[in-house]
Amino acid sequence: MAFQFEPSVVLETFPMLLRGLKYTVAITIGGLAVGFVLGAIAGLMKISRNGFFRNLAGIYIETIRGTPMLVQAMFLYYGVPMASGVRIPPLVAGIIVIAVNSGAYIAEIVRGAIQSINPGQMEAGRSIGLTRTQTMRYIIWPQAFRRMIPPLGNQFIISLKDTSLLMVIGVGELLRTGQEIVAVNFRAFEVYLAVGVVYLVMTLGIARALRALERHLRVVPGK
């Protein structure tokens, strides 16, 4: 039987994907929100004067960046319950995986952005009598945060796409939903095309929103 492309199937697929899309969005946003906090803490620890904190952050970052996310997900969902005796619901496991994984990359983004700020800024803050923490908060962080936006946007997009890997632990996200539809109608071409389009629309949307945010945060408008 010759392959016959059915555009109508693509269109019919979109509403059926909505259920999975909700999970994808929820895991991405939840995972990244926690991941940003983790990343900010680990990034600050990485540049702290305390060697213990530096090492701890280093181990976390290297371990996560040096292993595939798929392995991290399977280890957490299938492996950890064997040891702990407590099963984790797939959605929760998904959010944890995205958070811990993105946190390691975000830590490097945070560290890099802070270290890119001229050391004269810290000296100037200290010279007017601010504490190290105050200088970090009022002087360094606001400047560093602006520089984090492009790489954070990049990470946002990567994490969004990475949620598709969570289908292996049974999270009913977008790709998994697509797979379930294919199991019924056998229209793999049309269904996965539709799935791809949904990812693409979201990643393009994020990229645009971030460019707008960057423009908005520019210190002197139009410069």
Binding site: N118, E123, G125
Partner: peptide
């Protein structure tokens, strides 16, 4: 440091 504050060659104003 607030009593003996410093003015730098590179100004080091807070740009934001």
């Amino acid at each position: 440091r607030a009593e003996a504050t410093m003015v730098f060659q590179q100004f080091n104003l807070f740009p934001h």
